[in-house]
Design a binder for these strands. Structure first.
Lengths: 221, 221
DNA sequence: GACCCTCTGTGATTTTCATCACAGACATCA
DNA sequence: TGATGTCTGTGATGAAAATCACAGAGGGTC
């Protein structure tokens, strides 16, 4: 059972839930539980079955593929209001997770049991549309990602990555490499190149973007 | 309007349609049209809007990403009974196609207008589950693909590709390269390597698999 | 300050793949 | 039987990225 504060924040992040009749919503949420998870936790992993549909209230999850040799690649991020569609896949298709989810910051999330999820999906158009939209967006993201990984050079992908973060960026080169699916040294060298062009200014765990326009031009090339 | 033969084949390929009340089904199908498309046609392309939900009766569609330099990479194939989930994304998210679809063989398909698609989705659980399952499967496929493209070497990907086709394989090296997102010469050389190991026997537009076990072992390595 | 740990810079080397440039093989058809 | 077009084989070359191996640099702690 959720307390009032949690519930109101839930409705704020997931407005489609407001369209349910209050009584029904309450009965569904009665079976939900709140979870608090510290940063850096593996929330789910490949080949695990999954047991509920997470509704994220705060924090974010990196969904990644890990390679045997330790390298990893970020597939997408889940932020509050988005939920992790991978789970829906598991719940619906009765398959298992195909990736690993790691909390970036501390998470606060409401876990909806599979049964409630299915009821919502069947009965409530707003919720269904929401889930479809998520699916659709992820599919789009992944197609773009495949294309980028297959055809784009790393320097362009890196440029694109950093202009989509708010400057100054606080991250290690290793973290950026993990997001791109590459190695730390490569990122270091490429960033050095960007710095030599005067596009960024580098510091320890920090990248300050100086010339967004040039970076963007370079990324789109 | 569909003729009787077409309709019965449709129900055979898409059994979930049988669960609809016949009257309702007929009214939905009344608005559908049959299309015949020759092999090698671009069925849809990136950035096109889309106008209906295709139900494939025969033939198959390669869904690909094309790079500016002419190289391409196959995201997945659509076969009868599967429909192209990319379209649902378009219809639901009101976005545009993110990839290109090319008919491999001549296609016969029923095109369901967006309105009928939405009605089906809203009213009929079997159809909805079907669409969800498709989404989920594609998502899974794409995640595997991203991972393969990012972390696996081409020789292993090629090995996996050919053991999943029925021997003898009738395809040009270029076609295989397009499926992998690589170049023709590379595929030729790798295949030669496989042949030298005694794993395959090569001929013009033909690859005969001799030693599936070794190939599999090599692919899984 | 001495110590330690993480993060970064950088050269050297290697692997993988792409690209270019042809030559030869095979198939079809006039 | 040429003639033509597609498919395949292959060497040479180059670019991108991975890998290895350290050397410092920066920041924290005792």
């Amino acid at each position: 059972m959720l307390d009032n504060d949690t519930q109101s924040r839930l409705l704020q992040q997931y407005p489609m839930l407001r369209e349910l009749p209050a009584a029904e919503r309450d009965s569904l949420l009665a079976s939900a539980s709140v979870m608090h998870i510290p940063a850096g936790t593996v929330v789910f992993d490949e080949n695990q079955p999954c047991h509920g549909f997470p509704l994220l209230l705060s924090g974010s999850i990196r969904v990644i593929k890990a390679a045997p040799n330790g390298r990893e690649l970020q597939l997408y991020r889940v932020v509050p209001g988005e939920s992790c569609i991978l789970t829906s896949g598991c719940l619906l298709g009765h398959t298992r997770y195909q990736a690993r989810g790691v909390s970036e910051e501390a998470l606060e999330m409401v876990l909806l049991p599979a049964s409630s999820f299915n009821i919502l999906l069947g009965k409530h158009e707003a919720f269904r549309n929401y889930v479809f939209l998520l699916f659709s967006d992820r599919l789009t993201d992944l197609m773009q990602l495949v294309s980028a990984v297959a055809f784009q050079k790393l320097d362009q992908r890196l440029a694109k990555l950093i202009i989509n973060k708010s400057s100054p960026i606080h991250a290690t080169h290793q973290a950026l490499a993990d997001e791109l699916g590459s190695a730390r040294e490569i990122v270091s060298r490429l960033l050095k190149g960007f710095a030599e062009q005067g596009w960024v200014k580098l510091g320890r765990e920090q990248i300050e973007i100086i010339d967004t326009a040039s970076l963007k031009k370079f990324a789109e090339l």
